[in-house]
Design a protein around this nucleic acid. Structure first.
Lengths: 147, 147
DNA sequence: GTGACTTACTTTCAAATTGGTAGTAACATT
DNA sequence: AATGTTACTACCAATTTGAAAGTAAGTCAC
């Protein structure tokens, strides 16, 4: 794509996709939320080539969604943990997952439960203030003025 | 990536990303929600090369998020309109946008308002049943059993 | 203290994909 | 007949990917 131009795009979706618009990055973030932290854990779980994984982890770190943490001094070993921005990405993954479940849900599927109650979690996007479901009311997009 | 394997993946996120894991597709969907339908509208608005646009539109159509509709018989002209599955993708775009606004929100940014009240919309992901915000409670992932 | 093992990579390279420009097909309009 | 519109296709250089093999810095077992 064209990362330079897109970062000036006033659309927040475009800005997010400027660096996150590839499947591997999102799957790495999914695994990071699942608890994986180490290079080889990601590599084995995703079946991704090490060269690509290196680049993706570097990009996610650079972009502030992951950070490197030394977990052993001798030998020096680093792992990748989610930052606050990375943890805040969870709703995106959930929403993608909800769509996938609804429209690509044939066959066996992972289920996501409340850890305590065991109830299946069904994500729904609402407006924070009104609580009205997104999509139920017409919206208006306002471009920023001036230049 | 490896679309074949990933379609059997029991993770709904992976299934969604198997075909949607690229930025252009998501930006096309964004523009489609914004009201664009025609090849040249997408092309000009996105600044995307026609070859790539052709491929992406074909993929989105193939995957059932867009469908072609004849809007003129003479000359024969087709446009791309969102299907139900495509329209249901809106929460994903909103959630991505909310993240982008929070973490890449420097400078001028598009605003999304309720068309009637004019109030800014702030998307929040909650559980459909309990109304509890996603991320506030620990979750448990259950792999499908058997094979 | 030598050989096997672990972990996190780098190197290499063919194959696939992208991005950009130019051209085309099927019509309508003037 | 010339020009314009719309939705593409063809082409090609450049980039990115995917897969396999190799490496660096250590540890551990004997």
């Amino acid at each position: 794509m064209n990362d330079k131009n897109i970062c000036d795009d006033p659309c927040p979706i475009a800005r997010c996709l400027a660096f996150l618009g590839d499947a591997w990055s999102l799957l790495i973030l999914r695994d990071a939320h699942f608890g994986l932290t180490r290079f080889d854990q990601f590599r084995k779980n995703l079946g991704i080539g090490p060269a690509i994984l290196t680049r993706r982890l570097a990009a996610l770190t650079e972009e502030g969604l992951l950070e490197k943490r030394l977990y052993s001094e001798r030998p020096p070993r680093e792992e990748y943990v989610l930052t606050t921005a990375g943890r805040d990405f969870l709703p995106v993954l959930f929403t993608i997952g909800a769509w996938g479940r609804k429209y690509r849900g044939e066959g066996r599927l992972v289920r996501i439960l409340d850890a305590e109650t065991g109830a299946e979690i069904r994500p729904m996007l609402v407006d924070e203030v009104t609580g009205i479901k997104i999509g139920d009311r017409p919206i208006r997009i306002v471009e920023p003025d001036g230049d």
